[in-house]
C-alpha cells in the first residue's frame, strides 16, 4: 500500500490537512483579502460578529476588524510555529545524530547536556529568555526553539543508534566513507519520517507557547499573532466574547489540524504501528 493511500485512509488526518491548507491559503491571501493594516481602527469598538457585513467577526476594543486580524494573524502564528520548530530542529537533529553515531563519551556528554535543558522548567526558561532578550519576533522564536529541542535530540539519537548497526551503514564504513558523509547520506535520511511527524506536532505546541507568552505580555507588539489577539481580548470574555474567541478557535483548529495530520503521517510512514489499529 503506498503512502498516500495509507494517509487518506485516516479520515482525521485528511480533515487536518484540509484545515491546515485552508489556514495557509488565508495566510497567503491576507494582503489581498484585507489590504489595510489589521491595527487600524476602522469601526465602532465592540461591534458584535455576524451583524455588519463589513466586519463579519465583529470589532475589538479599539474598533479594529477582527476578521482582518485573524487572517493577518494566521501568517504570524504559522511563521512563529514553523520558524521556531526549525530552530529546534537545527539544534536537536545535529546533536542527536552526533550523540547517537559517536556513542561513548561524546554521547554521554551530549545527553547530559540535553538532560540539563530538560531539567530547567521549560516554560519558565522561555519566559526568562524572552525577558532578557526583550519581546520581539527573534527572541520569541529563539526562546521557543531553545526549550523545544531536547525531545528531538533524543528521538534522533534513538533512531541513529538503531540505524548505526544496519548493514548498509556498516558497508559505508567499510568502503571508507567519511563520518559526516555517512551521517548525512546514510543515516539521517532514514530518520526523516519520525522527525517530520514530531516537527508537525511541535509547530502546534510552538503556536500554543507563543500564545501563552503573549498572555503574560511577552509577545512582539508589532505583530498581530493569534496569541496576541486572545491575550488582548481576554479581559472582555464576559461582554465581548468574540474578541478572544475567534483567535482562540483559530489556534485550537490549527493545533488540532497539525496533530491530526501529524498522526496520519506517523501511521502512514510507519505501517508497523498502523497495523495496531486493526
Amino acid at each position: 500500500m503506498n503512502f498516500l493511500k495509507r494517509f487518506c485512509r485516516n479520515r482525521g488526518a485528511v480533515l487536518g490537512l484540509v484545515i491546515l491548507l485552508a489556514v495557509v491559503v488565508f495566510a497567503l491571501l491576507a494582503p489581498t483579502l484585507f489590504p489595510q493594516s489589521p491595527w487600524r481602527p476602522v469601526g465602532r469598538p465592540f461591534l458584535a460578529p455576524f451583524t455588519i457585513e463589513r466586519f463579519p467577526l465583529g470589532t475589538d476594543t479599539l474598533g479594529r476588524n477582527l476578521a482582518a486580524g485573524l487572517v493577518h494573524g494566521a501568517r504570524v502564528s504559522l511563521m512563529i510555529g514553523v520558524v521556531s520548530t526549525l530552530v529546534a530542529l537545527l539544534i536537536g537533529v545535529p546533536l542527536g545524530a552526533i550523540a547517537g553515531y559517536a556513542g561513548g563519551f561524546v554521547d554521554d556528554a551530549l545527553m547530559r547536556f540535553t538532560e540539563f535543558f530538560q531539567t530547567i522548567p521549560s516554560f519558565a526558561l522561555a519566559i526568562v529568555l524572552v525577558a532578557i532578550l526583550q519581546p520581539q519576533l527573534g527572541s520569541i522564536v529563539l526562546a521557543i526553539g531553545v526549550v523545544s529541542w531536547p525531545p528531538i535530540a533524543r528521538l534522533v539519537r534513538g533512531e541513529v543508534l538503531s540505524l548505526r548497526t544496519r548493514e548498509y551503514v556498516q558497508a559505508a564504513v567499510t568502503i571508507g566513507q567519511s563520518t559526516p558523509r555517512i551521517i548525512f547520506s546514510q543515516v539521517l535520511p532514514n530518520t526523516i519520517a519520525p522527525i517530520i511527524v514530531m516537527g508537525s506536532l511541535m509547530i502546534g505546541s510552538a503556536i500554543l507557547l507563543e500564545s501563552s507568552l503573549s498572555f503574560l505580555g511577552l509577545g512582539d507588539p508589532n505583530l498581530m499573532s493569534w496569541g496576541y489577539m486572545v491575550g488582548a481580548g481576554r479581559t472582555r470574555l464576559l461582554d465581548a466574547w468574540w474578541i478572544s474567541f475567534f483567535p482562540g478557535l483559530a489556534i485550537f483548529l490549527t493545533v488540532l489540524a497539525l496533530n491530526l495530520a501529524g498522526e496520519g503521517l506517523n501511521d502512514a510512514l510507519n505501517p508497523r504501528l498502523a497495523r495496531g489499529r486493526e
Binding site: S37, W39, R40, P41, T61, L62, G217, P221, G231, A232, T235
Partner: peptide, 15 residues
C-alpha cells in the same frame, strides 16, 4: 508594561 490598556494606547498612537 502596565497591562492591556497601555498596550492598546501604544497601538493606537502608533497608528
Amino acid at each position: 508594561p502596565y497591562g492591556e490598556v497601555w498596550s492598546r494606547w501604544a497601538e493606537s498612537i502608533k497608528q
